[in-house]
Design a protein around this nucleic acid. Sequence first.
DNA 1: CGAATTTGTTCTGCCGTAGAACATAACGGC
DNA 2: GCCGTTATGTTCTACGGCAGAACAAATTCG
Lengths: 393, 393
Amino acid sequence: MTPTPAARQSTLRSSNLALVLRTVCAEGPLSRADVAVRTGTTRATAARLVDELVAGRLLDEGERPAPPRRGRPATPLLPGARVGALGLQVDAGLLAARVLDLRGRVVAERVEEDDLVGSDPVDTLARLGVLAAGLLAGMPAGLRPVGAGLALPGLVDVAAGALLRAPNLGWSDVPAADLLTAHLPTELRPVLGNEADLAARTVAETAPGRPGPLRDFLYLSGQIGIGGAAVLGGRVVTGSAGWAGEVGHVCVDPAGPACRCGSTGCLEQYAGRHALLTAAGLPLDTPPVDVVARAEDPDVRRALDAAADALGIALAGVVNVLDLPAVVLGGHLAALAEPLRPRLEELLGRRVLSARWRRPVVEAIPGLPAAGATGAALRALGDVLADPVAWLG
Amino acid sequence: MTPTPAARQSTLRSSNLALVLRTVCAEGPLSRADVAVRTGTTRATAARLVDELVAGRLLDEGERPAPPRRGRPATPLLPGARVGALGLQVDAGLLAARVLDLRGRVVAERVEEDDLVGSDPVDTLARLGVLAAGLLAGMPAGLRPVGAGLALPGLVDVAAGALLRAPNLGWSDVPAADLLTAHLPTELRPVLGNEADLAARTVAETAPGRPGPLRDFLYLSGQIGIGGAAVLGGRVVTGSAGWAGEVGHVCVDPAGPACRCGSTGCLEQYAGRHALLTAAGLPLDTPPVDVVARAEDPDVRRALDAAADALGIALAGVVNVLDLPAVVLGGHLAALAEPLRPRLEELLGRRVLSARWRRPVVEAIPGLPAAGATGAALRALGDVLADPVAWLG
DNA sequence: CGAATTTGTTCTGCCGTAGAACATAACGGC
DNA sequence: GCCGTTATGTTCTACGGCAGAACAAATTCG
């Protein structure tokens, strides 16, 4: 236990700098006077803090497209466009590198689709490293990269920067951060994260520091298997070691089919992409839209119903334990939301203890491809928002 | 969304006062110099803060049972003994009122055992109010009550101070805080809380501000039904509306027996006290020790195994979603821990995805009767620790 | 009995915010 | 076209809180 250090004058300053930066990030263009009102400080103090952030390039003074009003026109403040973070992702079907700026805009990206199941981790991460290095080399000179993150579909050891196990890739014990650092500037050693956790972050946070419409929800990322993440108060619940969110291995029926995890009747065995397509008698590369199109086919209908039932049972359990007002379907499950929803909502209404007072809502948010990469960049930019002083140099 | 106010000088002072108070509460008797070291401040500043807390009676200067050392003897500081909070509890089998001081000691208590299933909420809460008023009337004059809490076995609306539904009591829509306020001083309007959440708090926090041995765990409170609470980083996860922790209604087998909640195959139907005793062919008032004594009886053994299996399946799901390193059995389940543990730990080892890296541990913590009342008092005292300035008057 | 040692107190200086006065840049009416 | 109005942004002084160093106090050890 590191004892918490007491707050000193400088702590006050950092904390208020962070508050001002967060405020501008969260509420679009604001003037110095707006910032003073939002933070409850005087204009004098707000201006002082803003000036420091502008000097450190974390905030930009915009040209004034001033809506004509009385009084001296305000200079609009925006999150710094010259601060960017690198988000990386390796998934069963793609390799992605994406740079986001503090406004949450995609500055540059490269996505390579490829079947990476069973690929060699060293080769694949080297490919990703080259991809990322190329992306950074092509960046406009003014942009300063402040951090990097890597989304991986599996259990991750954040402190060590290592992937423990990613069943969908067939990878185990990969020192991913070390392998990538060889291709990147030293200050851009990527912080690892679980793909579903980071994808969930893109739903909770539409841009750095800007809260999304939902603050509490369970996110499901349907891939070959099923990943998930619970979000409470806008923060992803990562658990004590960062291994939370394995919704795909919640047991739906102890007498159900064996799962590769060693257990039986896991949710993944009903609602995972492979399991669902197999049950529906469709080829494993059938895109979700085709599944929806054939929803009236009896075999497909039966598979969809079984998936909805399994989701209902598993998610009701999670909602009972965590009290979440919404379930967000992402990944391939987003596309299947329509045929799944009626049965799923009915089950949640019946099996969730508090449904009588607040019935859980099912939302579908497809998200852009490689949402994990965006989430990884958001995490890195979140570090800047949390402690701007460290980035003012 | 209330905009966060910026930190000012006075914020700094409150925050450091809170830190000093927390530090002394967490690490037993400390001198001013110890506090300075622990908080990283100078002795001058630490002494100033300590003096203010001593003047406000939140800290006491102890007599020095000084272990003979070189140098000027230190004056030991202790959490204020004259600050107390009232914890109340209504359960199916008892009514409890308990006063805890800032050191976590039980200053006074009254517990009445009685069968309250199906009782009239207005009458019962009036009884509890009288009990509490009597307890307060008998308190030493020096003790200042700073807050109150009420633990209830059901879903609670904290903001309204109302109980929504407590199946074990047969109560619905009870304005509990209002009913009790009639018998108590106005500043002691009790804050409602779920019994399992508050009992879990007594495990996470052995005394106000003093962390227990476990920081992350799932607590199970076995009563007639089964309540639960997840604790992450020492904080109880209450969910978005405070309704989290309904582990008893996680589905173990969709084809299982119907539950009074309207669902099927809930954990409660296998490991709840009533369900377990019925399955074992024992009378419903059999104390847990007798169940353990007859563990070799085939019927009892079968019921215990079924309960262990159900717990394994349900808890593995929760652990997969929340990544918790430990499961704590409380209530009647604590007494049954020995016969349940082997099978339960085996199942958790098999069904928890991350068990290969860290196998979940099962602990039994019986706790004192009416742990919810203690937890409710701890919550109120936690308010004092969070913002001592409000209590310095 | 005096040196050493540790605790607690006093005093000065620095830093960050509050508050008020002042400067600036627009609009609008006459 | 000028001047009052209005809102923004800046400058200056005051206050409060912590850091750091010097000092006073109380006990042990040689």
